[in-house]
């Protein structure tokens, strides 16, 4: 554990809490892609199956359970509790275009050809692209509420901090997880355009982020 990794995990936690609290308080999930949230729940589910096979640390176990619970709570709020507010007309990204290549890749490129390892690899690749339905939705509607952009900012910050964590681990413990690093870098690139808009628009006090 290093400071980048801890800060990354905290950013990830903050992002998910921001989204959950936003939906709960406003009693609305307008502007939120339910598809991205289902994909994230699938990411956590397939990655954290090792909860049943290995124990790494109390921190690791607690964080995994919290992430799982919060991602399922988010999906529940969007599709059950506040489904009337769900903007399905703008949440039209074709998820199968992500799932098919990701499933194929996880069978081709993995550390061991075992069910748990293939599912872990699937979760890593899927996380890299899971935000695409959300970014697609913002592009389609041309705007995002500032609280939604704060969510995306913390999610992107988490990714950037994980890259710093990998650089640190590479130099201090010769740790290099090629699958996680390559897909992590790809994932971070998706946020760059958004980061630019966030800094130039949202941080200048706009209530909404309107796309140029």
């Amino acid at each position: 554990m290093n400071v980048f990794r801890l800060a990354g995990d905290v950013s990830h936690l903050v992002a998910i809490i921001i989204l959950l609290v936003k939906i709960w308080r406003s009693k609305s999930c307008a502007g939120i892609s339910g598809k991205s949230q289902v994909l994230f729940a699938l990411v956590f589910t397939t990655r954290y199956l090792d909860l049943f096979t290995v124990f790494i640390s109390a921190y690791n176990t607690i964080m995994k359970v919290v992430f799982l619970a919060m991602s399922y709570a988010t999906v529940y709020l969007i599709y059950m509790r506040f489904r009337n507010m769900y903007d399905s007309e703008n949440d039209t990204f074709r998820v199968e275009f992500l799932l098919v290549p990701v499933i194929g890749l996880s069978f081709l490129e993995n550390y061991a050809f075992t069910p748990l390892e293939i599912l872990w690899t699937f979760s890593i690749f899927l996380e890299a692209v899971a935000i695409m339905p959300q970014l697609f939705m913002i592009t389609k509607t041309g705007e995002a509420e500032s609280i939604t952009t704060h969510y995306l900012f913390f999610l992107g910050l988490y990714r950037a901090l994980y890259i710093a964590n990998w650089v640190w681990r590479y130099h201090t413990e010769e740790f290099f997880d090629q699958i996680a690093v390559v897909s992590g870098v790809v994932q971070t690139i998706f946020y760059c355009d958004f980061f630019y808009l966030y800094v130039t628009r949202v941080l200048r006090g706009k209530a909404k982020m309107i796309l140029p």
Binding site: M63, F67, Y162, Y170, E174, F175, F176, D177, Q178, A180
Partner: peptide, 10 residues
């Protein structure tokens, strides 16, 4: 630089 298993990151 072999990967250390199990996966210890979130």
């Amino acid at each position: 630089h072999a990967l250390k298993m199990p996966h210890d990151e979130l």
